[in-house]
Design a protein around this nucleic acid. Structure first.
Length: 420
DNA sequence: TCTGGGGTCCTAGGACCC
DNA sequence: TCTGGGGTCCTAGGACCC
């Protein structure tokens, strides 16, 4: 099941006055995250710049994406699915796989009927429309769900598989992207059916495991199970930020990187995770990335412990005179914070102190808003120059001053810069 | 789609071990 | 000192997805 224009549909469900109108979300990023079908009808596409959107559709309603609300819709959508089957895989915020095998008996009807009922229930209870594909494997079900949108319900029984794959360009198959389809085209494979019918030997010789699996799935042989466990934890947490124009200013670029690292750490701490590896990368103007991976002595999610490696790694990667347009940080090798082992040589007293500081920082942020407290090295380059030039002018206030006050804007207070 | 941000998994090849 | 044969772990980089 795949929700139709999910973010835009949620907005229309909450704000009835938006129904029937061209609605676009993504205002905060300057590009279209989701477009309602009314907007799509006028040529608005995902990823489009807002300037072009207004040109194509002057009466468009532009909204910032409100992820918290969409997540609530998402949760309720999955809850509805679980009424039909316990085997529900939450694939993304607006998509799920449901294993219906064996349920015809209890629902007294065909799979098509069950799917129709699911669709009806979601649409009635949540006010958003969804499209559903039903078939023998996840890849085929996914193909079906995209076949007709919005409000589509596509059954692909085994005997009809070829009908759907015949006209389907190979690059539209789930798991086959631009690179692989370009390669396949060289061998005369342009449709999903041609790929599915190609002999196993060819795939084995030229491609990797995922493509052998996709081929089987296209032939109606299920190899990807529906995984009902809710996704727990992360393999990695990353933060990246593009800045335009690209910059050659080392202090500025490092400040960006530092900010990314801080933000990634906030997210890691929120999930009680610690990282054993830190990846740093810079993107040049030509979109090529260069980076470095660092192993940490001990898994951590405390910026204070990461600045040194961050600085070191940055210095190894950074080349002066080259304009960079993005910095990125990845926290990898994540493990539950509770499982972190100290080594014999760790200064445990100091680590506990650090932990207490960040505990406080996180509490302050929870109470007074994100980034109430942040590291001085993450300040924008301009502020930082000021900071270095006139140290005394940088407003540092003790946390106590904030007690009982939750509007630092009104107080005219700048951010509290705590240097750790 | 001249390109935003956040993820996952797979593979080749090097280092190292018995 | 050189050699055969078998295996594991790790990382860089690619490809793909929403």
């Amino acid at each position: 099941m795949d929700a139709d224009a999910f973010f835009a549909s949620c907005e229309q469900a909450i704000h009835p006055e938006l129904r029937g109108k061209p609605v676009v979300t993504g205002r905060e990023r300057g590009i279209v995250a989701a477009a309602s079908y009314e907007a799509k009808a006028r040529g608005v596409k995902r990823g489009m710049g807002l300037f072009d959107v207004k040109k194509a559709c002057p009466d468009v309603i532009l909204l910032p994406s409100d992820y918290e609300t969409y997540s609530l819709f998402s949760v309720r959508m999955f809850e509805i699915l679980r009424r039909f089957s316990p085997d529900v895989e939450e694939y993304s915020i607006d998509e799920a796989f449901v294993d219906l095998t064996g349920l015809r008996r209890s629902f007294h009807g065909s799979y098509a009927m069950i799917a129709g009922k699911i669709q009806e229930t979601v649409e009635n209870e949540l006010g958003i429309s969804v499209s559903i594909g039903v078939s023998l494997s996840k890849v085929l079900a996914k193909t079906g769900s995209k076949h007709k949108k919005p409000h589509g319900l596509t059954m692909i029984p085994g005997r009809d598989i070829h009908v759907y794959l015949e006209k389907l360009p190979v690059e539209e198959v789930w798991g086959i992207g631009a690179n692989t389809s370009a390669f396949l085209r060289k061998f005369g494979i342009t449709t999903a059916l041609e790929f599915a019918r190609k002999d196993e030997g060819f795939i084995k010789k030229h491609l990797s495991k995922p493509y052998r699996e996709v081929r089987l799935e296209l032939n109606g042989i299920s190899v990807y199970p529906v995984v009902p466990e809710s996704k727990s934890g992360y393999q990695s947490i990353s933060k990246t930020k593009t800045f335009t124009p690209a910059s050659t200013d080392k202090t500025f670029v490092f400040a960006q990187l530092s900010k990314n690292m801080e933000n990634a750490c906030i997210k890691a701490r929120r999930h009680r995770l610690a990282a054993a590896r830190l990846l740093i990368f810079l993107r040049k103007k030509d979109f090529r990335d260069i980076g470095i991976e660092l192993r940490l002595n001990r898994p951590t999610a405390y910026p204070a412990e990461l600045f040194e490696p961050l600085r070191e790694g940055f210095n190894q990667v950074y080349q002066s005179g080259i304009p960079y347009r993005l910095t990125g940080v990845v926290l990898a090798g994540l493990m539950p914070e509770s499982r972190v082992q100290f080594s014999l040589f760790d200064d445990t007293a100091r680590i506990e102190k650090t932990a207490r500081i960040y505990d406080t920082v996180d509490k302050l942020s929870a109470r007074f808003g994100k980034h109430t407290v942040r590291h001085a090295s993450s300040l924008p380059a301009k502020l930082q120059a000021q900071h270095e030039g006139q140290r005394g002018d940088v407003p540092v206030r003790r946390a106590g001053l904030f007690r009982g006050e939750n509007n630092r804007q009104r107080l005219g207070l700048p951010m509290l810069h705590v240097k750790v």
